[in-house]
Simulated assay, not measured.
Amino acid sequence: MAKPNPLSLAAQVAESLKAPEQPKAAPPPASAPEPAPTKTTREGKRFLGYYVEPLRHEEIKQAALDEGIQIQEVLRQAVDAWMEANGAEAVAAVERRRARKAVRLG
């Protein structure tokens, strides 16, 4: 026997939860245009990630749940702690690499 499609089941549930349609009211008078949506938290940022073993992922996921935060926040805190301990060296290495590149290109 074929498994039921969860999407069709979800659509049926959503349909059954819809409120009965109310008569439409007259549209509100024209007003100032709506402001543009605010930027998302990802705007102007770059993705940084790495692969972990399934067991390690579950550990990180559980730690985030225990703290009431997202996995992304756990990783941000880990990177912040690493930068606190090694940041000066890491920044200096990036600056040296950029200087070498500028000499090669310039």
Rank of each mutant, 00 (worst) to 15 (best):
L75F: 08
P23F: 07
P23R: 02
P23W: 03
E84W: 03
V13P: 00
P27K: 07
E34S: 05
R96C: 03
R97G: 08
P20C: 07
L65Y: 08
Q70A: 13
T38M: 11
G68A: 04
T40L: 05
L55V: 12
E89I: 02
K3D: 15
T38I: 04
V103W: 01
K45L: 13
Q70T: 12
K61A: 13
D66T: 05
E43T: 14
P23S: 02
E15T: 02
G68N: 04
G44D: 03
I60D: 05
A88H: 04
K18D: 08
P6Y: 15
E15N: 02
N5Q: 07
R56Y: 14
P4K: 08
A92V: 01
Q62C: 02
K3A: 14
P27H: 10
Q72Y: 07
E58A: 15
P29A: 12
Q22F: 06
A81L: 05
A25Q: 14
T40N: 15
P35K: 09
P54W: 00
E58V: 00
P27Y: 04
A14T: 00
Q22G: 06
K3V: 14
A2V: 13
L17I: 02
L105R: 12
I60P: 03
A92W: 00
A10R: 12
L17A: 08
P20V: 04
H57A: 09
W82D: 11
G44A: 07
A85M: 07
A92Y: 01
P29G: 09
A93W: 01
P27M: 13
A19K: 09
V103I: 12
A63F: 08
A93T: 13
V52P: 03
A90H: 02
V74S: 07
A78D: 02
A10Q: 11
K61W: 07
T41D: 13
M83W: 11
E67I: 00
L7V: 09
R46A: 12
I71R: 11
R96D: 13
A30M: 05
L65S: 12
L65V: 08
Q12T: 09
P4H: 07
E34L: 09
A85F: 01
V91P: 00
L17C: 04
L105Q: 15
P29M: 01
A102S: 12
P37R: 15
P37A: 11
L48G: 06
W82H: 13
A93R: 01
P20I: 06
V103M: 11
S31K: 10
A11V: 03
W82P: 00
E34K: 06
M1D: 10
L9Q: 14
E84K: 06
A99G: 00
A99F: 04
A64V: 12
Y51I: 00
G106L: 02
A19H: 05
P35R: 10
Y50C: 11
P23D: 06
P29H: 05
E15H: 00
P6N: 15
S16A: 10
V79A: 14
K101A: 09
P20G: 06
E95F: 04
A99T: 03
A93V: 01
E53R: 01
A2S: 12
A36C: 01
R97K: 04
L17F: 09
G87F: 05
E95W: 02
H57V: 06
